[in-house]
Structure formats: C-alpha cells, structure tokens
Design a protein around this nucleic acid. Structure first.
Lengths: 146, 146
DNA sequence: GCTCCAATGTTGGCAGGACCAACACTATCC
DNA sequence: GGATAGTGTTGGTCCTGCCAACATTGGAGC
C-alpha cells in the first residue's frame, strides 16, 4: 500500500540519512526538555574535555561553522552556561569558559543522550550495536579532514 | 589539536548524523550534475516501481510531506520528467505519470547513486558493507510507521 | 620598521530536508 | 443531507550546514 521504493531501501546512503532523521528527532526532542539544542551540547562537551577555547577553536573541534558558533555561544552565555571574555594576549580573540551551571547542564544532556541511543538502536543487541559503532566510526574516519 | 570530544564520537547518534552529512553532500553533488535533488529521485523511483500515483500517495511512499511533493512535482513537470493530469474518477486528485525522459533521468540518477555508495563506504570491505546495511535496515525498521 | 598575510569575530544570507497549520474542495459513509 | 476523511495548495517554521564579506588584530618575512 505504501511501500518505499526498493531502489531506496537497498542503498546505504538512504538507510543512513533516514536513520539520521530519526536520530535528529530523538535528540531534538530530548534536548528540548532541557532547553537546549545540538550545537549547545557539542560546545559544552568540547569545553569540558579540552578546557577553555576561542570560538574559532570550538568551531573546528565541534565541526561547526565560525558564524554559527557566535549564535550558539550567545545563547549559552544568556543561559549562564559559559562565560565569554576577551583573550588578554590576543586582542580580537575571545576566551570561552565553562561555568558550573554549564557542567550541570552538560550532565543533564549526557543522560538525555544515553536514553536516545537506546531508543534509536532498540532492536539491536549489545553486540550488534558495538559492530555498528565500529563500522560507522571506520566509514566516518575516511571523510574527516586529516 | 582539533580533536572532536569523545562524548560525541562514542555515540551512535553522532556517528549516524555525521555520516549522514557526508552522505547528503555526496548525493547532493552527484544529483547536481544531472540537475536534480533528493526529492526528485524518490518520486521518480516510486513512479517507476509502483506505477502512476496521486501526490498524496507519492508522499506516503517516499516519506515526503504532501506540501513538499507539490513543489517537487512542479519541478519534475517543468523538466518534462513526469506528467500531472487530473484523475477523471476523483475530481480533486491528480495522477502523476512517469515520462520516457523521466525514466532516462532515473537511470542517470541510479548510476550517480551507485558511485556515491562507493565513496561513502570506501574503507569498508564488501562483507562489512553488507553487515552495515543489515544493521541499519534492522534499526530503521523499528522507526517506520506500521 | 613596515608590509603582507593569516586568523578571528561578526553580520547576513542561502539551501535542503522535514514539518505544520490552514484553506478549499471532493468523495464517501452513515 | 450532513458529517467525515482525503486531497492539493499556499505559506510559514526550524535545524543544520555553508559561504561571502568586513573590520580588526597578530605574526612572519623583508
């Protein structure tokens, strides 16, 4: 009745992009419950794991365009999750720092994400999830800038 | 130097959405060379595999919103790849039909897509690609409307 | 020192894909 | 006949990812 064309369902590019649609939706819905969105998590995570950084650096680490980092940092500042201060050594550069509230927000988002993984891969066994993760990591590595 | 936070790289939702970014880009670039985009392929494929259909039907089969089908069909009509005629039995309904030129366009897009799969999964062996396809299909099935 | 280049922050814009609300119209079921 | 479900269409939103342009600043090379 409403079958998807086989040409589509057979191709990895379709499977990946369609599963990504569901992943995005789950992540979006989850993050909405804590008043955040994807870019926010990436930035908080980078600050937590690698310490304070300039906006350009954050963009490179998080795979976010410079111009989009501006907006995301603005929002995070407004929510009190990061501080933005001019870098004393480099006149134009900013230093973005994680606040305590930011750390707590990051932990909330971590929990949300853990649940999302479960919903997303629900029908797969633990072993299958591991295999999938390995294969995806492998494939993705080939497309990363060296 | 520009390492991605581990919190991200470890999670399937990140791997899937990021690989999807590259998949989209490869598909987009490929389809651009034949003057088309994603929605066009889905619609041509559905028409070829299941025969003429109404727009609402196409939307359901291709996972495209009704309103977006309108625009895509407009473009396909303008390019001469499909015909849109009023359904004689149902006053409001349209019947969308694939033209010969549409079939040729579909074949061109098929070739493009085959190359894309290869670029996308380049580092994986044939067996790994098969495993990946199986796991993705399995996971995706759980999120499809029954 | 001075010039040229690279990097930075910022604004503003665009496109694709997905989605939603509302409206007018039609067919069909009770 | 009247309520209801389906259809085509317009118009708008959102997230993500990008790009161009600009002013400003640091640093490298001469």
């Amino acid at each position: 009745m409403e079958e998807i064309p086989e040409r589509l369902t057979v191709r990895p590019s379709w499977l990946i992009t369609q599963l990504a649609v569901h992943a995005r939706k789950l992540v979006f819905d989850g993050f909405t419950t804590v008043g955040a969105r994807g870019y926010h998590y990436r930035i908080l995570a980078a600050l937590h794991e690698h310490g304070p950084a300039s906006q350009a650096e954050l963009g490179r680490r998080c795979r976010i365009d410079r111009s989009d980092v501006v907006a995301a940092v603005n929002e995070l500042v407004a929510q009190g999750f990061v501080d933005r201060t001019p870098d004393p050594d480099h006149g134009r550069r900013n230093k973005v720092t994680l606040t305590d509230a930011g750390v707590r927000q990051l932990r909330r988002m971590d929990k949300v994400l853990d649940r999302v993984q479960d919903d997303l891969l629900e029908p797969l066994s633990a072993e299958e999830r591991q295999t999938l993760t390995r294969l995806l990591t492998h494939a993705l590595a080939a497309h990363e800038p060296r």
